[in-house]
């Protein structure tokens, strides 16, 4: 079984928010909410400052606390690519998954169910790339099977320095940031 993940090149990302707009359009994300967003992190001491721009979203963790804590099984790991999804007809809106996510990747849709990035699984199952990846003007986002050593993401991770978000939280995130 494939294990989908992303490698995002922070050297190339300019924070244009095309990925954010593409996601909102493709997935009809309600007004005022975002499934993905841009994070700008500045570190160091002046004048030696370093800025990293990241396109962030659900990390589709290998050890997803949102799936573990869901009382109804609405949050689940999909058969295709191990993508973490929400079955809206099973969700009771208890918000346990929202509290359990250290990345703040979930929100409650105005209709009452939990919502988040799906890696555009409806597109991926048709052989397309997630909307955010397909529109990126700097080609900084790469999507593929982390378990396939010949996939583009695996090759990038093998050849470039990278980090993930909050690895200390123990969730084993599957989105990596190339530095």
């Amino acid at each position: 079984m494939a294990r989908f993940g992303m490698a995002i090149d922070t050297v190339r990302c300019v924070g244009c928010m095309d990925c954010v707009v593409a996601c909102k359009t493709e997935n009809s994300v309600p007004e005022g909410f975002n499934r993905d967003w841009i994070a700008t992190e500045v570190t160091g001491t002046f004048p030696t400052l370093h800025m990293e721009i990241r396109s962030e979203r659900c990390n589709h963790c290998d050890s997803p606390p949102c799936v573990h804590c869901c009382p109804t099984g609405a949050s689940h790991v999909h058969d295709v690519g191990g993508v973490v999804l929400v079955d809206y007809d099973k969700c009771i809106g208890c918000k346990a998954c929202v509290a359990s996510c250290p990345y703040g990747a979930r929100f409650i849709n105005p209709s009452g169910y939990a919502e988040k990035c799906t890696f555009c699984i409806h597109r991926v199952e048709q052989g397309l790339l997630p909307a955010c990846v397909s529109v990126c003007p700097t080609h900084c986002m790469h999507f593929g099977d982390l378990d396939d050593p010949n996939s583009e993401v695996s090759q990038l991770l093998a050849s470039r320095n990278h980090h993930s978000l909050l690895p200390e939280a123990g969730t084993k995130p599957r989105i990596f940031y190339l530095t």
Partner: peptide, 14 residues
């Protein structure tokens, strides 16, 4: 310094 700015402002989360 470490300063993080995000464009997300989801209701009940941010």
């Amino acid at each position: 310094m470490q300063e993080l700015t995000i464009t997300r402002h989801n209701e009940m989360i941010d």
